[in-house]
Design a protein around this nucleic acid. Sequence first.
DNA 1: ACGCTCGCATCAGGTGGGAAACGG
DNA 2: CCGTTTCCCACCTGATGCGAGCGT
Length: 593
Amino acid sequence: MLGAEGKTDLFSSKDSVEERRKSPLSGGKQPAAGSRYPEYGFGPERYYSPPTAPKPTADSNTPCSFIPYSPSGSIYAPSSTARYPTSLHLGSVGFSPSAGPRGHFSPAYQLGQSPGCLYAQYSGSGPALGSVAIRANGTATRAHVDLCNRPLWLKFHRNQTEMIITKQGRRMFPFLSFNIAGLSLTAHYNVYVEVALADPNHWRFQGGKWVTCGKADNSSQGNKVYIHPESPNTGAHWMRQEISFSKLKLTNNKGTNQSISRMIILQSLHKYQPRLHFMEVTENSVEEFNTDPKTQSFIFPETQFIAVTAYQNTDITQLKIDHNPFAKGFRDNYDSMYTTPDNDCLTPSPTNSSRAHQIVPSARYTMQPVLQDQFVNNFTQKRFYNSERAVPQTSSLLSPQTEDGASQRWFVTAMQHGTSGSTSHKLDLTPYEGDYSSSLLPYGIKSLSMQSSHGLSYYPDSPFSDMANVWGPRAAYQRKMTPSLPWSPRPSPTAGFPEDSDKVNPQFEDEVTGGGLTSSWAETQPSSLSLVKNDSYTPVCKRRRLSLNGPSTEDSPVDIKCEDIVSVASGSYCKEAPSSKGMASFYSFYTSY
DNA sequence: ACGCTCGCATCAGGTGGGAAACGG
DNA sequence: CCGTTTCCCACCTGATGCGAGCGT
């Protein structure tokens, strides 16, 4: 059930967006380039949803004006608009057996309606939204989106994700990052994220729990949309790499003049649901915002969060500290993290977790399910992508991408029903319980944790910039290209790199098919990783608050192992690199820090 | 001489903690 | 009074510029 959440299919095909807009920082027109990914998709019969969505209201200030199709469920429509019944939720009414229960790449569930509110009774039973966009020519275009860092999102979601909002704007963490497939290669799209109220309540953190406290302030004004700076761009472009919104900032400053392009204005203590939109545009309609372009929208319930000006739940705080590189200075020392009661999954090794995350290659290229973290590591890319872009998707017995899908459970631990009190808003992860023991590495592997280090790129932007160095113009343009005017000529990233299709597609295919990972390397990798840890770890005590929720130990072993798995998987990734030079770099890297 | 790579230093910006300020 | 917001701090990452070293 939960497995379907990682992948969502559009639920709204033809959507009139009130604030249809073009990015001022548009990318350029790009000749149709070979897509790295074929138009993967599933039969329309499985994802069909009403192609004709109701026209949105003209209330541009209302997030819900973007929501043409109510079954999106998780978005709360302020009473003022009253377009969306609060009882809507995502129902799991369809299941794709062909895709298999593979977690990240699990089949999408068809969107359905059923009693209950998604936001009020989040069961996680049918988060994936499916639908089919009907093209003008009558042929259905199927697009589906993967939430790249879904495992990390799930970690946060278990504790009710909180996002800091500040006057100057605070980046989201985890940030939104997607992979999409199924777009028209040549069609142009604007990609943007909208953050809408997820429910009608005002929330308060009380007694270690998030509880509702009155009604939400529906009068919220201000920008709720963040347009991806590379918009507009071709479907080929969007499908080529992760679509990252790492620069998206959240603010509570309604007076900010940056809000339109860079910030989304939210209200503290309100629950929000980010939504991804792909708006197909045509050259002729670039400046015509009154046209009615096709818009495909996606919702990932696990990205729901409560906006706060200060963290309330210390578990969330710890998760942020453990996973956000910019908060590395707040990380506790290794020993305490493994001896204190709260060394649960939320606080895996500051070292291994971060390194593991860093070492994770772009989810785009393979280990997405394994790599539960946000980051794409430029270190990894620098050292491995150049020698073998086809990454080790195939690498490891540790990969969650096992065909049986059990590995997915690695990244999802049991709900802590008693801890946050917001269980009703959490994904029901129980289906993932019980399989840890059979699929996880020995705890001892913890020793393989790697010291988090510096100089690593966490955000997709950087990785790509590094890839630029390694892959040449194809990747280089990703970063070096400056936001250009709409439709400005842009090099075709794939045109000059015919190998892309050869190397990347197979990977993607592997993802889809649940390509297995070789296990041989896993037996050897630990030693090197252990060495790393021993050499690099330096205990540092930092202040740390204790969670009001108390230790959540039930799943800690799982997460710990999970982290380790990532580390090991990363190692496998390294080993996969055919270049001995790359390996040398790898080892020197770890021994030097 | 020129171009390239590498390492270092610097700076901008992101992070959560904690105390003070604010407001109902 | 209490909950929330704001501000400042130390710490960290990442981008950039510069110079040294090396090869052509």
